[in-house]
Design a protein around this nucleic acid. Structure first.
Length: 285
DNA sequence: CGATGCCCCTGAGAGC
DNA sequence: TGCTCTCAGGGGCATC
């Protein structure tokens, strides 16, 4: 899916289109994605002004007037695409809805936002803004990796004593929110820690390096507009380009950019991990 | 409580 | 050209 950098890139693309504008028409073309949509979704969106577009972990949060917030999750294949003329060119045609275009929002001024999601692992919900943090999808999330609540000592404390691989802990959204399979492999490579190492065997110094690596790789990826492997697109439809900067992800058999040794792939919990056995020794085993 | 595996769904790409 | 098989960036849930 879109991980944190991809969601943040989409947010930055949508914010200038959405913020301060009213939704003049909402078309909801199916009743659900991963879960059923909230009742009367189209009616509840129509006429509402979007006051701000925020991000929490991999969720986009559109604060609406009337103290409700629209919660959006892109799942694995979700896209939020902008079309139309923001200045309202009279003859500007919107594209005909395509397969997997599930929700279409028309904004005052003429822009249109379309939620397309082939695999339908995405999610949409509405929640009262004051109680947003208590929403079932947001309540258990750990700190933002780019925020003040995430650093080496915090991470060391969360890794301590856990007999599960460090990659599993770092990918647990309750520990830190927003990392997915790509940036887990990339961050562990930057910190020179094997994804197979047990969390309890990661030293405090390594945890410090890992927290720094997480922040650095996320910032680099955001600066590149995210990573486009298959489905992900920015709000303007363009590709991100951080995939060209991968050190290890999806590079099995290719040379490690640091040592030249071959990248290997391991399967953990049914998901691929990519790493360099020379740079990321399994010391501690 | 912690760890593991399954599953939701469609489409792309590989192999034959 | 077409069939079948495998795999994909998430994450909730059942199970042990």
């Amino acid at each position: 899916m879109p991980e944190l950098p991809e969601v943040e890139t989409v947010r930055r693309g949508l914010e200038p289109v959405l913020a301060g504008r009213r939704i003049v028409h909402a078309e909801v073309r199916r009743p659900d994605l991963r879960w059923p949509f909230p009742p009367r979704l189209a009616e509840r969106l129509t006429g509402r002004r979007v006051d701000a577009l925020r991000r929490r972990s991999k969720y986009l949060l559109a604060d609406l007037d009337g103290a409700e917030t629209l919660i959006l999750h892109l799942g694995m294949s979700g896209r939020l695409l902008v079309s139309g003329a923001p200045l309202g060119a009279f003859h500007h045609a919107h594209p005909v809805p395509e397969k997997h275009d599930h929700v279409v929002l028309d904004l005052e001024g003429g822009a249109r936002i379309t939620f397309n999601d082939a695999r339908r692992f995405g999610a949409i919900d509405l929640a009262p803004t004051p109680a947003l943090e208590a929403h079932r999808l947001l309540a258990g999330l750990g700190p933002e990796p780019l925020g003040n609540g995430f650093d080496g000592s915090y991470l060391a404390a969360r890794l301590a004593g856990r007999r599960t691989p460090v990659k599993a802990v770092l990918g647990d959204q309750r520990v830190v929110a927003g990392l997915g399979n790509i940036y887990l492999s990339e961050a562990l490579w930057r910190a020179r820690i094997s994804p197979l190492r047990l969390a309890r065997d990661v030293t405090p110094a390594e945890a410090e390096a890992l927290a720094a690596a997480v922040r650095a790789v996320l910032l680099d990826a955001i600066a590149a507009g995210g990573s486009s492997l298959r489905d992900y697109r920015r709000a303007d439809g363009e590709l991100g380009y951080f995939q060209h900067s991968f050190a290890v992800y999806d590079r099995e058999g290719q040379p490690c950019p640091r040592c030249g040794g071959p990248i290997v792939r391991s399967v953990q919990s049914g998901r691929s991990s990519f790493w360099c056995p020379a740079c990321q020794p399994r010391a501690g085993w």
